[in-house]
Design a binder for these strands. Structure first.
Lengths: 348, 348
DNA sequence: TTGTATGCGTTATCAC
DNA sequence: GTGATAACGCATACAA
């Protein structure tokens, strides 16, 4: 129907120049109230949609949006409370800076570099990508302010996370200090190959997800520092985002001889599953078994001892760093905290 | 440091025209492999970030993003599982269409029309806004494909939701069919004034949130159709997003004489609170009291009878309608379902 | 296969 | 207070 109406359309109709019309919208004080009034009225009549944001953005050189790269699709990412909390935190920063939050989903398998290539944003936040994920290259190619949260850790790319190594070390020392000597690990999210089962040190080291790998390294370093022989520590691995992985790992670990008196888990979800397995096997927690989680997501109700990372703080900090206008620092580590609840005690 | 590098920079350097360089990126088959190679190499050397998305978007006339308006900030919106589910659904549609999802938060009080004005998007989805919220005007001014989910219902603005009236009617008939005659209502989210207490019919009708208002209307219509005198039905109102509202409402309703034998709640969170109040008061559910929720968010574990709306379906449908390229239908109603669990039974 | 010319809709700079 | 003009960076019809 109607032709596309632009500043020019209105200018012609009112009999003024384009610039004047532009002023009417963007610099109200640069022209007489009366003229402005007239221009706005005509704009209204013509059904003008207001200054075209894309053109405006091009001219102004700013997008007014922060890009967030999620591995996976949102429905999947949101199965993880950590991701939700992080997004909430990031949203706080976006709100403070009055910019939008552009979510760019990268469904596994069919990655979408085009989405990243075409994203109209001022900065990128990359949330927890596996090593070598194509989206990261696409992001880096854009040469915008960028920060990587949790992983991967890359030279020259600003990084934000917690000190996974130290945190895992704290978890380990906690149980060691309680007197445990037979510990076991339940780990998830190391690879994409869907493997279940015992993971030897080589397998542990080949983990694709950096954060998870570092957690395992942290467990190991602390254990070895205390004189434990790592080769004798059973490590059971389950594939990512499987609801029943914890139970499986728990069963496997509890079937060992000697039975571990403490199980360290690299996520809380896993730890909850281990608790189920223990209940199932009639193993009392914490009398006969100590369990430690990681992340403090849904751990409170279960009374789970865990490492807390402030998800929202992480998101907020990432956002603020990106939107501050300052250069993004190369490495930012946020604090973690060992939360001792009722699933850990000295060995029976 | 380096000058801003554009297509022209590369063209000059390689000694070809701007168009050729553009082809090298966007139409690989329009030039010799060799030349393309050379161009890309120079681009790389110069640190070219790729075709500027804003300029590209301006030229192409498409943004590659879907705008989502959230009342409130995300951290707040995400206290509601319904909002999360909806976002997940919308994300599915965005992924299918390979577009980004631009979240525009509208913090209460300080609304941000600027965010909407400047948003580089192809369409807008407005999620559950109170009547008269300024963001909606800003959205409509953009004259882009737009859909409103849940509220407000406006003439000429495409709308998507469930039939709240019918759903509330189903909930009401369920308890009436069980034989209940003394029913009470616990309602939340009617106004912004933070009022707690009994809401008379006038107050019920003045509700700012359309969906909630319609639910109440649905309860009422079904009750009156069964011959109940609405004026005698106690309706207790609590402010939105308060964790303890359900308990408060439950206590108030259970203190009435005659005590209601069935309480209808316009959200599940509220219903869970009512269950707590009943437990507290030693009132057995469902023997002495039937409770019905609304939304099926977190109702399953509690065995709550409720109305289920498929949150993800709503989001997905909204997204697909917007991104289909077809005109958005004026009214879309999605099905609801009465889920009978263990909190309803015939009156003792 | 490559180059030329033009327009996408704004806003900023400078005149007047 | 208002107008002409030049960018912003790109893509495309068309000519060569």
């Amino acid at each position: 129907m109607a032709e596309r109406v632009t500043l020019q359309t209105i200018a012609d109709r009112v009999g003024v120049s384009r610039a004047t019309v532009s002023y009417a919208f963007s610099r109200p004080d640069q022209l007489s109230a009366e003229l402005r009034e007239r221009i706005l009225r005509v704009a209204e009549e013509l059904g003008y949609a207001g200054p075209n944001p894309t053109a405006r953005s091009l001219r102004l050189g700013r997008a007014g949006a922060l890009g967030l790269i999620f591995t996976e699709t949102l429905p999947y990412a949101f199965t993880d409370p950590y991701a939700i909390g992080f997004l909430q935190g990031l949203a706080v920063a976006a709100e403070e800076a009055a910019v939008g939050l552009l979510i760019l989903q990268q469904p596994r398998g069919e990655e979408r570099p085009g989405l990243v290539r075409d994203a109209v944003v001022d900065a990128f936040c990359v949330f927890s990508l596996p090593d070598g994920h194509a989206a990261l290259d696409a992001v880096l190619a854009r040469r915008l302010p960028t920060i990587v949260v949790d992983e991967p850790i890359l030279d020259g790319v600003p990084y934000l996370g917690i000190d996974e190594l130290a945190a895992a070390g704290a978890a380990t020392r906690h149980v060691l200090d309680l007197g445990h000597r037979h510990i076991g690990l339940a780990v998830v999210g190391l690879h994409h190959d869907g493997r279940h089962g015992w993971a030897d040190p080589a397998r542990q080291e080949s983990a694709v997800f950096e954060a998870m790998r570092n957690r395992v390294r942290g467990y190991r370093a602390a254990a070895e520092a205390a004189g434990l022989d790592w080769a004798s520590v059973p490590v059971y691995e389950v594939p990512g985002h499987e609801s029943d992985g914890g139970r499986e790992a728990g069963r496997a670990l509890l079937a060992r001889t000697p039975r571990p008196t403490a199980i360290l888990c690299n996520t809380d979800a896993l730890a909850l599953g281990v608790l189920e397995a223990a209940a199932e096997a009639g193993v009392k927690v914490p009398e006969e078994l100590s369990v430690v989680g990681f992340s403090d997501s849904g751990a409170e109700e279960a009374g789970l001892t865990t490492i807390r990372q402030d998800k929202q703080l992480i998101g907020r900090t990432a956002g603020r760093l990106l939107l501050s206008g300052e250069p993004v620092p190369e490495r930012t580590l946020l604090p973690h905290e060992l939360i001792v609840r009722s699933t850990t005690a000295p060995p029976g």
